[in-house]
Every structure is written in C-alpha cells, then in structure tokens.
Design a protein around this nucleic acid. Sequence first.
DNA 1: CTAACTGCAAATTCTTTGCATACTC
DNA 2: GAGTATGCAAAGAATTTGCAGTTAG
Lengths: 161, 161
Amino acid sequence: MRKRLSPDQRQEVHDLFRRYLHRQGFRQTPERFEVLDALYDTDEHIDADELYYRLRTRKRSISRATVYNTLNLLEACDLVISHQFGDKGATRYEPSFRYWQHDHLICLDCSKVLEFCDPRIQRIQDLVAEIYNFEIKSHDLNLYGHCRRDDCTHRQSGLAR
Amino acid sequence: MRKRLSPDQRQEVHDLFRRYLHRQGFRQTPERFEVLDALYDTDEHIDADELYYRLRTRKRSISRATVYNTLNLLEACDLVISHQFGDKGATRYEPSFRYWQHDHLICLDCSKVLEFCDPRIQRIQDLVAEIYNFEIKSHDLNLYGHCRRDDCTHRQSGLAR
DNA sequence: CTAACTGCAAATTCTTTGCATACTC
DNA sequence: GAGTATGCAAAGAATTTGCAGTTAG
C-alpha cells in the first residue's frame, strides 16, 4: 500500500534531518537516527509506544523520553506527520517524505486505516484560505465508517449506535 | 457566528435526550440535563474541564466524572460532536442539533476556531465510500494555518517552522 | 425498594520534565 | 572540556474506574 523509499531516498531523509539538527544547534545522536529509521521502516500509522517497543527489540536500548523527544523534532522538520484519528488514543505518526498527499479512512469497528487522495480537498483549502484571509499550512481529513472486510471485527448487532 | 436554538428547539433537544435515555434504560437525572444545557448555552468549542467549571458556578455542584460520563452519552445519541483539533490537548465538544454541517479552520497562533462549509466534502465522502466499499458515518476536516487578525497572538518571527 | 447514578479520590493512559550520567561537538 | 542528550523515574494532564452513599423509576 505504501511505497518504501529507495536507499538513496532514505539517505536523503537522513541528510535532511542532519541538516535540520545542525541548523538548530542540536546534536546528531545515534538514538535520533534510530527513531527516524524505525519510523520509516513501518508501513502503518504507529504510535510512540509501539515505536518504543520495536526499538527495544533492536540492539540498542532506548527510553520512551527519547522516542517522544525525537518524534517532536521529526515533526518540527516535516519528516513525520502526526494524527489523532479521533479515537482519543495515542497520537499516531507516519513518514512524510516524498509520500503522496493523502487523507485517511478509518474503520470504526476494526480501526484499520486506509489512505485516499482527492484533488478537491486542495481546492477547498484554497477557497477557504481566500474567503477567511488565512494562510493555510496543513489539513487533516478523516472519514469514519464501517469497512466491509470479512476479517473486520464486527460491530455489535444494532445496539447503541 | 453560531445561531442559538429557539426555546422550542431546546425543548426538542431535551426530548431527544430523554427518549434516548429511556430507550437505553438509563435514568433521567438533573445533572445530565444540566450538562446538556450548559453545552448548548455556549458558542465555542469547549472542553470537559471548562464545562465543569461553568457548571460549578451554577447552583448545583457537579463532579468531573459526571460531566465526562454525560458528554459520552450525548455523543452516543448524536446531540454533541467531539473534536481533537490536533493540538494534543483536551477533546472539545460542540452541540450538533440542527446546526449546519460544517468543518473547522484553526489558527496555529491564537487557536481561534472558525467554521466553514463546502459541499465538495460530501462528494468526496460519497466517492471514497464507493471506491473502498465503506459505509461512512462521519468525517472531520480541519484546516490549520495563520489567521491575519490584528489581535492574533503573533507567530515567532520566522524561527523554527 | 433496588439498581443505577453521583461525587470523590484513586487508577490509567499518554506525554513531558528533572536530574545524574554519558557523549557530541 | 562544556554543555546538550540520554535514561530513568517521577510529575502532569486528560479521562476512566471503584466504591459508598444517594436517588430515580
């Protein structure tokens, strides 16, 4: 579903992060690049805790504080995007380098997240920016519903909601 | 910006809640209707804690647990809608009875929330539902940017981001 | 009357912070 | 070598839960 980056592109991501850290006077630590790689290695929309556990299974140990700290840095330099998905659960993250601009479709039953793209969103954004005199930096469009997959955790048969 | 409900409409909202509670075998307590009224009395997108403080200034005292519990009931029967607004802060709520379908425009500097409406969102929703074979129940579209109001807390002059 | 609701405080969950130690620059 | 980052644990913030007392049906 999501295309992996080539080694060259992965290198470019490292360079971007490296330059960002240098520009801000932050240090280049191995932990920071491990978090970056672990996130770019996943195809899902992962939360900080899950990323923390995946990193622990790798060689070096890392602390949750460092994971959270690094994710905030990565978001600040636009290498990752965070989402809430309205489930009041943890913030979830995804890589954002050279990925197509997309939005999310979330199943209320099994929490599966699909991605889609519709150019009309850009036009809505432009129009609203003009009408309200706003300089729009980003948007979040989430559609919630029931998928019809066979392996979907079925909703409770017509009780509340 | 947001039109208040007429007394008749307010009554209708009470009736809807009353019928929902009865249908589910839940009790009609004064606290539940006070939370409903307090929320429908506000024009903003308010969080549970702020609602709790407003309720405390009224006659009867109420606990946070009851506020949270009631907001969940009101959301389950579609009388209120909750939002996250991507700030990782508290969930914010708004009345949803007879209000126009709308989305939100949030200023990254002063956190002001504006509402807008664009019919193209409905069409995107229909198309995505068809393509992915989803039964879509709701959506959330938030645009984030910088407003250009004079009283806007100004962004830091071109530092990070 | 009895089961559900409230209020309170404690428990949970997610995230940030403080401090001693370790490691970039 | 100076000062920032890490790791750990403790603090915070938002929300839920457990329980004794209260109240709606």
